[in-house]
Simulated scan of single mutants.
Amino acid sequence: MNLESSLITWIQKKSGKLSSAVKLGIGDDCAVVKFSGDLIFTKDSLVEGTHFKWGYQTLFQLGRKALAVNLSDVAAMGGVPLYALVELGIPKKFSQEKIKEIYRGIFFEAKTQATTIIGGNIVTSACFWISITLIGKSAKHFVTRSGARSHDLIGVAGYLGLATAGLHSIKRGLKGYGVLKKAYQKPCVLVGVGSVLAQKRWVHAMIDVSDGFLKDLNHVCCQSKLGAQIEITNLSIHPQLSLWAKKNNKNVFHALLSGGEDYALLFTFPSKHLKNIHKLLKNNGILFNVLGEITPKKGLFLTQKGKPHPLPKCLGYDHFS
């Protein structure tokens, strides 16, 4: 049995029992799924040298993260994940055991979110990459980036800035900063929260913070044809982030505003739902901050204790820089 065939057989065994809706899973030309209603599709990739470097996380963590970044997109639409298609580009000298360890991470993350791996592809490549297509189901009301309304409040569920500080700590070989490193290596996605916010119709627009708070807020504003004003002193600063900034001579607000890969949820909502949202997130142990307001005037505007504060030169991660 060649490498591809043996891997497919192993993946089939590890994928577990299929739900009754999956008529045909891994092993054929296509998967077949029975479904009615609206489906959500998303696709994201992690490419060696572009999105990660070996040694910054374990193979297991890389597998988990590859699926987690897709799960976060579904969370931002208020959907529920169902199925995933996994494609790997593998260098010729990459061992089968390494591939299996990455898949173990994928299967672990899939299990935490009741997601089934139903197919995929394996190809040889000059560098390693992993690309996942995730299929979810939409709530009765799905949420987009373009639904923000003037005078909506701007809320964030989850901490900001931790992952970028964690990556810096890993790169520099800094001791400690366990919370920061974990945020980069094992991101926590808020699928359940996103789904409830959508089903309750408490939010008008939503996006996950993957490229940086300001960069992703700008996506919402541009697609909603509005602007935003942010009071930066409303940002909660994790104690480890504050310590990291102080000891490494870093601007903590740059990490908070422009750091990526936090996978927090950023959403806009009418003030009448503030108490409900606060209660939901508090009951789930998730940090919640109201950072500002959507404005009819286009553009992003920062204040610090009510006084104008300049925007950073870089709003967040640029995929083509």
Rank of each mutant, 00 (worst) to 15 (best):
R172V: 05
K175W: 07
Y177C: 09
I154V: 13
K171C: 03
D152Y: 03
D152A: 03
K181H: 10
K182W: 00
K171G: 00
H168K: 10
Y184G: 07
V179E: 14
D152Q: 06
A157C: 09
L180V: 12
Y184N: 13
I170S: 07
R149E: 10
I170E: 10
L160E: 03
V156S: 04
S150H: 04
Q185E: 15
G173L: 10
H151G: 03
G158C: 03
G158Q: 06
R172F: 06
L174G: 06
G178T: 14
V156L: 00
K181G: 10
S150K: 15
A163G: 05
L167V: 06
H151C: 04
K171Y: 13
S169P: 04
L180S: 11
H151M: 06
H151K: 15
I154Y: 03
A148M: 02
V179R: 15
Y159G: 01
G176I: 09
I170C: 03
L174P: 10
L167P: 01
Y159Q: 02
G178P: 05
G176A: 09
K182N: 15
V156D: 04
S169R: 07
A157H: 09
D152S: 04
G158D: 02
V179K: 15
K171D: 10
G161P: 04
S150Q: 11
K175V: 13
K186M: 13
A157G: 08
G178K: 14
L162C: 02
G158F: 02
R172W: 11
I170L: 15
Y177E: 06
S169D: 06
I170P: 07
Y177H: 14
G176C: 11
Q185T: 14
Y184W: 14
R149W: 06
G176L: 07
L162Q: 00
K171V: 11
A148G: 05
L160V: 00
R149Y: 05
G161L: 02
H151L: 07
G176P: 10
V156I: 08
T164M: 07
L180A: 13
A157P: 05
K171R: 15
Y184I: 05
K175F: 11
K181N: 12
H168W: 07
L180D: 08
K175D: 15
S150P: 01
A165M: 03
V156A: 03
G178H: 14
H168C: 00
G176K: 15
V156W: 04
T164H: 08
A163E: 01
H151P: 00
L160C: 05
